[in-house]
Every structure is written in C-alpha cells, then in structure tokens.
Design a binder for these strands. Sequence first.
DNA 1: ACTGAATAACAATTCAAA
DNA 2: TTTGAATTGTTATTCAGT
Lengths: 158, 158
Amino acid sequence: MKIKNSRLDAIRLILSTQDISSQEELLNELAKEGFKLTQATLSRDLHQLRVVKTVRTPGQYKYELPRNSQYRTNDSESRPLTTQQEANGFLSIKFSGNIAVIRTKPSYAGTLAYHIDNCDFPEIIGTIAGDDTVMLIIAEDTTRGTVLRVLRSVIPNI
Amino acid sequence: MKIKNSRLDAIRLILSTQDISSQEELLNELAKEGFKLTQATLSRDLHQLRVVKTVRTPGQYKYELPRNSQYRTNDSESRPLTTQQEANGFLSIKFSGNIAVIRTKPSYAGTLAYHIDNCDFPEIIGTIAGDDTVMLIIAEDTTRGTVLRVLRSVIPNI
DNA sequence: ACTGAATAACAATTCAAA
DNA sequence: TTTGAATTGTTATTCAGT
C-alpha cells in the first residue's frame, strides 16, 4: 500500500529522467533506490501506470509514461483535483541536456512559467513559455531528480 | 517494396479502425485482406511503423499507431503540410547542441511549431515559437541527420 | 491486497534462403 | 531487401502464500 505507492512514484521518477529499455533494466534502477521486487510485480506496476514500450530508433526501445501523466493509484482517480492542480494545467515533463520541456494544456504555459520564475529556484536559471510549452534552463550540476523535487511546490501533481 | 508498402498501409488502416490486442489477432485480420505473412514479419512491420501496445482497460491491450502515421481522411485541417511546400514558410534550420533553430517567413513560426508538436516525434521533445523562429529541443542520442529526416514529413522542402 | 516463483503468452531476433 | 521457421528474449498471468 504505502510501500507500493512510493515504488510507483520511484518508477515515474526514473522513467521521467532516464531512458529505460526493458523491465530488467528498470528493475536494476529500482534496486539502486532500495526497492526489492521481481519482474512479475514490476510488470503489474507498469500495467497500472499504463506505461508503454516505444521504439526510439530501430532496435532501441524506451518505456514511456502516458502523456497526461494522470498517475497515482486507482483510488486517487476518483478524487477531485485540488484547485492548484487544476490551475496549473500540467501535462508532462521531459528532459534533454540542461533543458526541461513542460507541456501544459493550451494557454497555461505563461502562467506556469510566471509562477516558476517567481520561486527563484537556484536550480532553474530561467524559463521561457509559449502557449502550451514551458522550457526551463537547468543550472549546472543540478540533477533532473532535483528539478522535479523543487518543482513539486509549484506543480504538486508532477 | 510494392507488396510490403501496401501491407503496411493495410496495417495502418486496420489499426486505425479497429481494436487489435495482439499480433496474432492482427495477423488474422490481414489474412482476411489476403495478406499472407508470419508473426516474424508482422513484428518487423509494427516496429517499422513504431506501433505501441497500450493498456486500454486493465487486462485489455490495444496496438496504436503514433500520431503522425495515423490514417487521415483528406481534411486539410489536421493534415501535415505535405501538399503545398510553400505553405509552411520554412527558410532555414541551424543546430547548436541539443537545440535546432528554424527560421520561417514572418508569422509562420507558430503554425509550423504546432504541426511539429502534433507529430509527437520522440526525437523532438519540445518546441517553442516566436513570430519567425521555432526552437526545437532535440532528444539525447539523436543525431541532426535524424532530426532532418523526421522533419521531412512536416517540412518537405527542408 | 500484494507479492514471488513458475509458467504461459507473446514479441523480437537470428539464421538461412530467395 | 524481404521473408518464414525456429529460436531466443521479454512480458503477462497463474497460482499459492502472506
């Protein structure tokens, strides 16, 4: 229950920040974080998170979270969103190099970027927003996990 | 080849119009259309089309095409700008690190970015547009050649 | 409800051939 | 380059136990 949810969060974190190409590989990453489980359980977790195995380049696979990262366990699906969750329009976040790309619902990007800017996170040296996309320039020596962690205060549903 | 391409088209049509939950099931549908092939070949076809196996409801799977290879009727709205090469306003593309910068004619950038976004290329994790400039954030481990190749479906005159 | 061990089911790849 | 047969590899499920 409690353990399982933190494990699902760990899976989401790992899949959001690195390229994973098999359940075996993900199992190893989870082991590094102290999660002990078998492939059977992981398969069920991925099923619950509706993770899909995509083809990146021929012969190379990547496990990806669904784009509207409506995660959490089944019980939270029926729980109404808080105003803050509802308000930020967050859909997904991806990383490449020192840049994070946040997708939002249409027209939400500007407001979200404004809020992130206002936080003056030292880990995020700047943002730029379109209509449904926010780009974050990440400070050097800052990990993606850290970025996700600090963003949680602005985007609780990240 | 000719046969193979029509088979790929048949696959795209089937996946666009019905729920398929396994390769074997798809094999049967293809047989109805007169295509004789084995699971090995089908697996390769699906790989080429970058089809993903998604979870619809718990325990129920569905093979889905990526957005940019879905079957579309000739409504010009959602269709990429493949017909009129002039329509996209493309002028030039340059690269630096994991960023590509596309210059367009004035006011064309937003529409072009929109179309690129809609394709959901895994190689391009995000775009942001000004008036005559589109910036693309390129996924890690993706070459510039690959970026140019995938953009060709949106910008034939690239 | 959650899990691991074993297994079944399924999909990807190898190999040989055309 | 494309393919099928066989094989391997990977993931989903069953079953039993907690």
